[in-house]
Design a protein around this nucleic acid. Structure first.
Lengths: 252, 252
DNA sequence: CGTTGGTTTGACTTCGATCAACCAGTGTGG
DNA sequence: CCACACTGGTTGATCGAAGTCAAACCAACG
């Protein structure tokens, strides 16, 4: 069971995305103990799967660098893309409930992940309250994130959904030290569509719409966000799809 | 801080829904220690809120009996109903990530909840591995549940969504020892609509459709599921909304 | 009783799905 | 080298599911 320390690529302690990741808020000595749970980083080639639905849970994975998508198919062949994961994001936490992964995790570019033996993580987090709390927060965060996505699907039209999606990506890029104004998409239009509950043609048209309004510049995978403010304000006024039906304002 | 044990209504140990709830899989002595974290059950009247968005997290709540809905409003007045909670379901886990609740929790009937001091729960779960694991599983379960809902919104049409919703309710009734064939809805059509990303008129029409097909009998809040099998099979054949576009089958 | 909140049904409109054509790269084999 | 297939992206025309607006219905209740 014991791994030779020299095999470990690097420690969590001086990882670029440490604060966003599991060791965020955990002090350095303890972060090193977490790092010791990671046998060795794994390289995943573009298009390859990290795990499949029904595989038994042994590890959860942190994306070290690269980009993933997670998606699942229902019995009758419908696909839902549940999320895109970038560095410091966790993969596999859906598996904790049943002990088996519920989705596919596919690398969208050559990537590297840190596998963490889950039951060892549970044991260690009993010893380290800050790690324990961080894990709980990450799980809860995932719930909130999914609820946000739900809100997009339930309340926003195609253009607004795409706008929200781009702003979300932008914010996550910024968290990781990249420019929030310009970045490259790692996924296809079809992936975006499967994520937002649309079809790829509709995503294209939504892009054309935002471009036409001068809110973004998008050609191929290259995105430039011209105005975060105006993009955010997309839904606020103008068309009112599925907003709360307000009580009529009676002056008398 | 110490509460007189005599104040505690009852213990978790002989609670009807113990296995579904946090003490599920935790042995009786330890379940009693969990019960000791619950100062006293709280009664919530129909229509009242258990908490509001931005309230600081102190307790998470287990529904002991009754029925709740959780929903949130975005800045621009759009509402998304994130879920319905019945006995043994947890309320407030969305708050763990930021320390503040992100949604409203409203009782749909007179209800009773078990408040659990969250930071004490974290401390106790460090001592009791089985409790710790159960908490992780419940959090993960919530992620999976939301992903399921996402799949409904992204891939199913109105009738299929309603069918899936009714089957889900039915399964949860059964888990709790009630009949899966007939039960009462505690929520309005508008609540169902806000949950499924539809409008109430569309929910009404979807009900009429299922009734017309002889799959359910619904009048007012009373639901009878005539055939679980045929209800499940709703999407499987026939119309193919948003299914995977299959590669054309070339014989040559 | 009339009021009120929830539900149902109808007529019409609209957003996004569908089907189809076409384009830009990119790789492959003759 | 060119012909070609192939993948991903864009745009147009058409259609249908669900949204919107409106009216009516019903049970509960003061």
């Amino acid at each position: 069971m014991a791994h030779c320390p020299s095999l470990r690529s690097e420690s969590c302690v001086n990882c670029r995305v440490r604060e966003l990741c599991l060791p965020g808020g955990v002090d350095s000595a303890d972060a090193q103990r977490l790092a010791n749970l990671i046998p060795q980083r794994m390289k995943i080639r573009k298009g390859a799967a990290l795990f499949h639905p029904a595989d038994p849970l042994r590890f959860i994975y942190v994306v070290h660098h690269g980009f993933f998508k997670t998606s699942f198919l229902s019995a009758d062949g419908r696909e839902q893309l549940t999320g895109f994961q970038m560095s410091a994001d966790l993969l596999g936490i859906d598996a904790i409930s049943s002990g088996r992964y519920t989705c596919d995790a596919i690398a969208l570019e050559d990537s590297e992940v840190c596998p963490i033996h889950f039951s060892q993580l549970e044991v260690l987090s009993r010893e380290l309250p800050s790690l324990h709390h961080k894990l709980n927060r990450i799980l809860s965060q995932e719930v909130v994130r999914n609820q946000q996505l739900l809100m997009w699907m339930g309340n926003l039209n195609a253009e607004e959904r795409l706008g929200a999606f781009l702003l979300d990506l932008s914010a996550r890029m910024q968290e990781r030290g990249y420019s929030p104004h310009a970045f490259l998409l790692r996924m296809t239009r079809e992936d975006i569509a499967a994520h937002l509950g649309l079809r790829l043609e509709t995503v294209c048209r939504a892009i054309a719409y935002l471009r036409g309004k001068g809110l973004v510049r998008i050609s191929g995978r290259a995105v430039e966000i011209v105005s975060h403010e105006r993009l955010k304000a997309l839904g606020t006024s103008g068309s009112t799809p599925r907003k709360l039906r307000l009580a009529p304002v009676n002056a008398g």
